[in-house]
Each structure stands twice: as structure tokens, then as C-alpha cells.
Design a protein around this nucleic acid. Sequence first.
DNA 1: TATAAAATCTATCAATTTGGTAGGGTTTTG
DNA 2: CAAAACCCTACCAAATTGATAGATTTTATA
Lengths: 137, 137
Amino acid sequence: MLSHKAKYALKALLYLAEQDEDHISKTIEIADGANIPKKFLEQILLDLKRGRFVSSKQGKFGGYYLIKSKNDITLAEIHRLFDGAIALLPCASLNFYERCLDCKTEEECSLRHGLMIIRDETLKAMQNITIASLIKK
Amino acid sequence: MLSHKAKYALKALLYLAEQDEDHISKTIEIADGANIPKKFLEQILLDLKRGRFVSSKQGKFGGYYLIKSKNDITLAEIHRLFDGAIALLPCASLNFYERCLDCKTEEECSLRHGLMIIRDETLKAMQNITIASLIKK
DNA sequence: TATAAAATCTATCAATTTGGTAGGGTTTTG
DNA sequence: CAAAACCCTACCAAATTGATAGATTTTATA
């Protein structure tokens, strides 16, 4: 399941993607528009900025805006940024790999192969869902 | 990600599936064989029993055994039993549906449609991974 | 029938994660 | 120069997770 953070991030990105080109959105505007607690949203927007999905302008009339095309922001990326691995176990993960400590031998654990198949399928599907694809319905 | 419970459950089922037909496995035997903390495994086996994947015999020479074919136990079922919904949000779930409370209108939330696509793909993949498929490698 | 072995039940617990809130500080700009 | 916004750090309560502990019930058999 997605965390609230990831869900809010997607909704915030959706909000930004729906604005006119060159429009800068204030935090409070996004919070109201997407129904997200403002202070919580602040942290999320900072994460999105660190992830180079959005950028910001400070000072009066400042705010946030997309710096990545809505066609290029995928569910997979947002999931990884906020919720980490897409695979079901760390030993089957591409980006968050860790060895299974409870597997007796150092060989592959019995689950790994199957979970890598799941990961590939899920990843493929998640890379197909973009912010743009969520808008046009 | 899978919880330890779900992971241990899969490993325990794998262990049981690899035994001879009619063999009854004691908890301690499964715990040692699959490297699972014994007391924790006890709870998991009870859950698997309630889920009708295994049955048990009490008393001396008792233990656990599969009552569902290893070809019919899927990753999807184990995920649902221990970790709940497969969908990324409750509003996109088949078995654990709940309305999005933070969506302003009562209509579908903007994420729902995309997440249902992911759910379908993931579910299909997870239903293809059975205990039997994990054994033959 | 006593006893040993095994499942089963009920409670508890520490650590971590989650979903926030609070309160400032810093930077920019009218 | 002050307002408006970003930015940062800390804290907090509730829930979840990953167990452990101990008592009880059931069963086979010596």
C-alpha cells in the first residue's frame, strides 16, 4: 500500500500538472486544491524538490512548479522516493537490495526468484502510469 | 513489501510442500528447517490453519500438514491473509475496499483508475506464483 | 491412568513507523 | 522593511511489527 505521503505527493503533482504553463502554485493553494494538510504538504514538496520533480521560487509571489514533464513522472519513481522498494522483499529489489539474513545458506532464498518476476511485472505497470496518464480520463 | 509474517508463512508452506505425502511436521521441525523463530511460527501456523491452507493434529506426534494443493496456494492469497490488500490504495482494492476520505467529491479520486490497472497486473502476476512454482527451480 | 509431547490460547513488550503538528528561521521581493 | 513564502528541526501520539513468555488443552502410549 502507498503511504499517505506518496498519495499526497501524487495528488500535489497532479495539481501542478493541471495548472497553466508558467503558473507558480503556493503551498496553501495546492493544499486546498488537493485537500492535503498544509504543514505536511510542505515536507512533501521539499522531498519532491530534492527528487528534482519540482522546483520553487521564494519570496512574495513564490511557490512551486513542475520541472519534469508530466509524461515523464511515473508512479514507480514516486513510490521509490517516498515508500522505497517496489519488490516484495529486499533480496528481490533492484534499487534497495539487501541480503536475506534469515536464509540459512548464502545461496538465493527460495522466494527470491518468484518475487523478482512479480517485481518486473509490477515495475513495468508502474512505469506506465504517469502523471499525464492520470489526468486524461 | 512483505511482512516477516508473510515471508515466514511462505517459507513454512514451502517446507511443508517439500515433505512426503502424509508426513506431519512439528512446529519445531519447520522452525529449524526454515529458520523461523519458533514461537512466532506458532502464531503464523494458526493463521494458516484459520485460512484453511494447513490443518493440524494435536497431542503427541501431532503437527501440521498441508490441506490445500501446493499448485493452488498462490502468493496473492498469502499476501491477503497476512498483509491485506494488494492494491496500492484501499479505494482501488477488490477485497479490502474503502472510500478515500480525503477526496473532496464523492466521485472517484484521481488516482483510483491508474491504481486499479496496477492492481490488476500485480494480482495476475501474484496468482501465477504458487508454492509449487517456487519449489521447481 | 499417568505422563510426555505437542498444539493452542492469552498476554505482554520494545522498537519502529506513520501521520502528522509546532514553531520558528531564512530568503526574496513589493 | 515587512510581508509572504520557502525551509528546517524537533517533537508527539497512535498504530504496527516482530517478536517472547507462560499457561492450558489435547492426544498417544507405556
